[in-house]
Design a protein around this nucleic acid. Sequence first.
RNA 1: UGGGGUGUAGCCAAGGGGUAAGGCACGGGUCUUUGACUCCCGCAUUCGUAGGUUCAAAUCCUGCCACCCCAGCCA
Length: 553
Amino acid sequence: MAENKHFIHEIIDEELKEGGRCYGKKVHTRFPPEPNGYLHIGHAKALEIDFGTAELYGGLCNLRMDDTNPTKEDEEYVEAIKEDIKWLGHDWGDRFFYASEYFEQMYGFAVELIEKGLAYVCELTPEQMKEMRGDINTPAQSPFRDRPIEESLDLFKRMRAGEFEDGSMTLRAKIDLASGNFNMRDPVIYRINRLPHHRLGTTWCIYPMYDFAHPIEDALEGITHSLCSLEFENHRPLYDWVVNNISVETKPRQIEFARLGITHTVLSKRKLRNLVETGLVSGWDDPRMPTLCGLRRRGYTPNSIREFHARNGVSKVNAVVDFAFLEYCLREDLNKTANRAMAVINPVKLVIDNYPEDMTEEFEVENNPEDPNGGTRTVSFSRELWIDKEDFMEEPAKKYFRLYPGNEVRLKSAYVIKCVGCDKDENGNVTCVHATYDTESRGGNTADGRKIKATIHWVDQKTALDAEIRLYDRLFTVEAPDLADVNYLDFVNPDSLTVVQGAKVEASLANCKPEDRFQFLRVGYFCADNKDFTPDHLVFNRAVSLKDSYKPE
RNA sequence: UGGGGUGUAGCCAAGGGGUAAGGCACGGGUCUUUGACUCCCGCAUUCGUAGGUUCAAAUCCUGCCACCCCAGCCA
């Protein structure tokens, strides 16, 4: 948790003091997704703020599906949303709700407004209403504004009864047709729509609008703080108008914060959906997607995502955070928690010329040097090994200190070896590296105490397993593919996925399960794919590479 | 020319009259059986801008500029 309280918590602190709006009350928030898509890292920010605020103050946070528009919502998203929230580690207890549970009460409040002369049935069609909306200098108009209360009451009842066509009538709040804030120009609060609702079917043919429904949902649930994103600031006067003009005891307060942006990706539902539908990614859970299910499949931990948001803070500035910062948070978490393993992604054969052909030894290797209780595992060693192509150079570049003829390196946890040459094919490609080992260096330490600069990873050919490795990189080549004046699809990174077949991994990896995460030593953090990994077909996704400060000159 | 917001380093972000926290990125060094990690050092004479008030201004006042949101019977 960040040491400095952000502005929302400062406000709450004030309200909790004696005489404050919430003195003696329990802080109660809510997370209200619309079930029409998958949750992404931006939603996770709201999740952290909503659930995190409740946790911080010893309060509660409700999970509520905001399903007031049957044309967009679907039950299929509900379970996925719950699953993602649970995965992140948040608990809504028994407080799971649907906005649609309150439709009857909302209807009652609408009637109350009509009776008070604060709402009226308007017969303008959408087109007419648009024409009569007015502009900055001209007030809106509605010829039905002064309709008698009884008449509105009757018409509203008949709207509910299904007597009128979709779109032919609305219920409007009577507020201010000349307001500079267009949300206050007699906003529509009910519309007619005969599409079946995902839960209630055809029970209703009229549905409340967000601006009317949301404050009621909050008030009915006893929400003290309704935290939402900046674009709803303009709606706050209407939110307050609703809670102040209907008969509810609790008056929740809406506070807005800036939503999250991240470089090298897009976060709008429309654009994400487009990536899926055009096949540029394999689905909503493609490991390149910023969706929670995508990040999960990629290898991100709930902890790293929560830490990312906690460290970013909360403000009202439209922020675009470096993708590198998300990666940093992941590395930081996985460095402490992920077991190490050896995997050779681009293998080349290494032969220890002076090692007996039929001999095999076993070495103990620590699972995680960062974790004293991490334990050890056993790896086998024999004359022929796999090492990474990048760890050998026949003619070393400046400052290169791995394997090259005449140079010594340490094979992690095994022996110190000295390169004696290599074999090449007719095209000059290295096919095999030759070395001799120091028989006095078992475990990796030299008998005479001489320092060995480089340590490289390796896998025994006798026990190595084949694996498919999916190397992921950022989805877009530019920082801001989301800018209004560019077509984001033009900047999809053609190299965002590289599939490597025939990588060689240590035998212990046969026992791992989908979603197990590892640091492949000196390479990066990898995660067993949660869809395609099987014991017979090992598939690992690269979550993030290790930092690499080696810069060839 | 309306209403609502926001401007502190390349990116986040504290600080709200007493002389610019912290993190990421970046550069250098240290350590190292991972060129990772750790640790250390460096990185805003200045807070969108111009004035004003004050012994003292990122903080208070005034003007200006830039950017974001708003004219769905979407949320």
